[in-house]
């Protein structure tokens, strides 16, 4: 299946939870990343339960200021 991560195409072999994708993508400081799935904010508490499906578009949004985390 194919998804978009921050606008870039990514092929996944199987469906993943948001949490699993965060791990797989080695997102830095995952506790502070904001996630939008198909233009809807995903609550941090739902990272493990929400499954990313074929065609989904996911955005990882990072704090950016004196330091990016």
């Amino acid at each position: 299946m194919q998804i978009k991560v921050n606008g870039k195409d990514l092929v996944l072999e199987k469906e993943l939870s948001v949490k699993e994708l965060i791990d797989e993508q080695r997102i830095e400081a995952p506790e502070y990343v904001t996630v939008q799935l198909n233009e809807e904010f995903v609550d941090k508490n739902d990272f493990s339960s929400i499954i990313i499906k074929d065609g989904d578009s996911i955005e990882f949004l990072y704090f950016m200021g004196g330091g990016r985390i």
Binding site: A29, Y32, G66
Partner: peptide, 19 residues
């Protein structure tokens, strides 16, 4: 704040000079 709920704790942010 809709996007970024709360500021990250100070110790989690690399200092301005470091970054």
């Amino acid at each position: 704040r809709c996007v970024f709920k709360d500021p990250p704790p100070p110790e989690a942010v690399p200092s301005c000079k470091q970054a």
